[in-house]
Design a protein around this nucleic acid. Sequence first.
DNA 1: CCGCACGTTCAGGCTGTATTGAACGGATGA
DNA 2: TCATCCGTTCAATACAGCCTGAACGTGCGG
Lengths: 154, 154
Amino acid sequence: MDAATTHFTDRMGLLFEAEGQPPIAGRIFGYLMVSDDPRSLDQLAEALDVSKASVSTNARRLADQGVLERVCRPADRHDYYAVAPDLFSRTMEGRLRRWQRFTEAVGEARRTLPTPSERVRGRLRGYETAYAYMVDAIGAAVDRWERRARPGRR
Amino acid sequence: MDAATTHFTDRMGLLFEAEGQPPIAGRIFGYLMVSDDPRSLDQLAEALDVSKASVSTNARRLADQGVLERVCRPADRHDYYAVAPDLFSRTMEGRLRRWQRFTEAVGEARRTLPTPSERVRGRLRGYETAYAYMVDAIGAAVDRWERRARPGRR
DNA sequence: CCGCACGTTCAGGCTGTATTGAACGGATGA
DNA sequence: TCATCCGTTCAATACAGCCTGAACGTGCGG
């Protein structure tokens, strides 16, 4: 692996770490981002110099999140991974899902708090409304983007 | 602190943890979210049953991020904290900033990789374009939201 | 039926970080 | 000037999670 690629994968590892994900997951993602073809677990383990166990776990994790796609080739027992073709909208979906968890907690609080003041109730309700507004706006923007970047798909 | 509030603050702690932030930061945020008035460091430490050192560090951290606001009262040496009034747009700004780091790394990769294939180059460029598109869309949505939620402000 | 090549799982070591108690600096008021 | 009350900083500890090597299950080929 050349120096520029190593630099990029390491940086992705740090960025993923800052988002609460394992560093290796970020490095896998980074490596596949700059890979032309899908890569097998062995290729990933060797390129990144990490154990196959980690690669297996983290690659599957990323695939579950929709960041990667598992590619199967006929007459080949290897699992190959590649960045998801609709990576961007998947990422946005994931972000909205994470925000939704916050909003659910806020909604539960608004419903179960014993004696919320008017200000607190308004604050919580305001957060929920803003979230709903954002879901619409971002969803619409992603749709527009997808239509622009991949006209005719679906 | 009543059970519903404790439940909410703990949940916020877990959600913050999943985002790569200290749990106590989330609990502070949660507690201030359902607090009518600004709270002092001592109040926070007692309510959440944590050391004042942690409260000091994490509250300042959140204030730096724009999530909280430090409130000063005349003739009172205490520091008070409250959720930022423009919490939502601050949160969005922070999210865009984090995405920007990814995009910067992608841009650097596109410029420094020794022999990127056409597919890889297109992928990286596509990511950068999508990010720029999203910054615009989200920025515009936040503006619309701010104008709707706080008409007349500035 | 055996050998091999995969991917997965799991206990254990290890590193990084959150949290704490204690010490510190600064400002205020007597 | 001293005593007190803040908030901050720091070394030390506890803890959580990542990563790994080895063992396991599975399916294919000989």
